[in-house]
């Protein structure tokens, strides 16, 4: 069944490709829109742009200040994901290996964070970040994402570590290594598959988050890509071509990264979901 290409397989291929074409229709509509001038948009909404105009892209890139937004998004995403990997794996290692009611309760306490609606603590957290003097800063966002995404990260790591045998570390500890050394040299390398998942799931979430950076970074000059694009779209709402160009430009970096790393991204999304 997995080896032969039969007439039935061909029919299936046609069906699947047709599905993909339908799936891509919104993308087609958006991309062609970005290449059209207002007159073409009004009269030929679905045809291919003829002739294509690229003027919208330059305007959109400039007006939405996307270059600095990309930098802001990258900085915040990379730092938050690093912090999550370090804090999450260390905590999960403890939670998975320490027996007893207390550590189990702590594990449950972390899990509670997965179902808490963010709106519940939104205002007190905002006050807190303000009191810490971190509003409008990268640090504030990094702290926020690290805290918000820790429950899920701890959950993924703990499940994985529980499935690892304890013997490796025990052997290292008997050899005189400290717990930290054993973790860094023995355990952490074993966690590579799940670390990939943690990295990808968190990076996609943080990169795409809109509401929090709007609240915490609005007006600071450190806005991330979705915030800049949202403001841009609101400002030029009636100029569809320009808006479409802005959306295409904003989605392009992450789509490119995805295309290059697609095997790892897709695997990352699926492989960690266990526990």
């Amino acid at each position: 069944m997995r080896t032969r290409y039969r007439p039935r397989t061909f029919v299936l291929e046609i069906v699947m490709v047709a599905l993909a074409v339908a799936f891509l229709f919104p993308v087609y509509a958006l991309v062609t829109l970005a290449f059209k001038d207002p007159e073409q948009i009004a009269n030929k909404p679905l045809s291919l742009p003829d002739p294509p105009s690229v003027g919208s892209f330059g305007t959109a890139w400039e007006s939405a200040s996307l270059s600095s937004a990309l930098l802001n998004s990258t900085l915040i995403t990379v730092a938050s994901v690093l912090a999550l990997i370090v804090l999450g794996s260390l905590a999960a290692y403890f939670l998975a290996r320490k027996a007893g009611r207390l550590s189990y309760s702590l594990y449950i306490l972390f899990l509670v964070g997965i179902i808490l609606p963010f709106q519940l603590g939104m205002i007190p957290l905002y006050q807190l970040v303000n009191d810490l003097g971190l509003l409008g800063t990268y640090q504030g966002m990094i702290l926020f994402y690290t805290g918000i995404q820790l429950p899920f990260t701890v959950f993924l790591y703990t499940g994985f570590i529980r499935s690892l045998p304890a013997d490796y570390t025990n052997a290292a500890l008997i050899d005189g290594a400290s717990h930290l050394q054993a973790f860094v040299h023995v355990i952490f390398p074993l966690l590579r598959p799940i670390t990939g998942t943690v990295l990808i799931l968190n990076a996609v979430h943080i990169w795409n988050d809109f509401f929090t950076p709007l609240l915490y970074l609005g007006g600071s000059g450190r806005e991330t890509v979705p915030v800049r694009v949202f403001a841009f779209v609101n400002e030029y709402t009636s100029d569809y071509g320009l808006v479409a160009a802005g959306l295409v430009l904003a989605a392009l970096p992450i789509l490119l990264v995805f295309l290059v790393l697609q095997r790892y991204v897709i695997r990352g999304f699926s492989s960690g979901l266990k526990g």
């Binding site: 804090l87 999450g88 260390l90 905590a91 290692y93 403890f94 939670l95 290996r97 320490k98 027996a99 550590s103 702590l106 306490l109 972390f110 964070g113 808490l116 519940l120 603590g121 939104m122 205002i123 007190p124 957290l125 807190l128 702290l143 926020f144 690290t146 805290g147 918000i148 820790l150 429950p151 701890v154 529980r162 045998p165 304890a166 013997d167 570390t169 025990n170 500890l173 717990h179 973790f183």
Partner: peptide, 30 residues
């Protein structure tokens, strides 16, 4: 032998502090 020799509490402390600060405390106040 799943649990092995348990690591010290310190391993969980930084995560717990950040989690408590960013999620637990604001949610309780909220």
């Amino acid at each position: 032998r799943r649990s092995g020799i348990a690591p010290p509490w310190l391993f969980a402390a930084p995560a717990l502090v950040v989690y408590a600060l960013v999620m637990l405390y604001p949610s309780i106040v909220g």
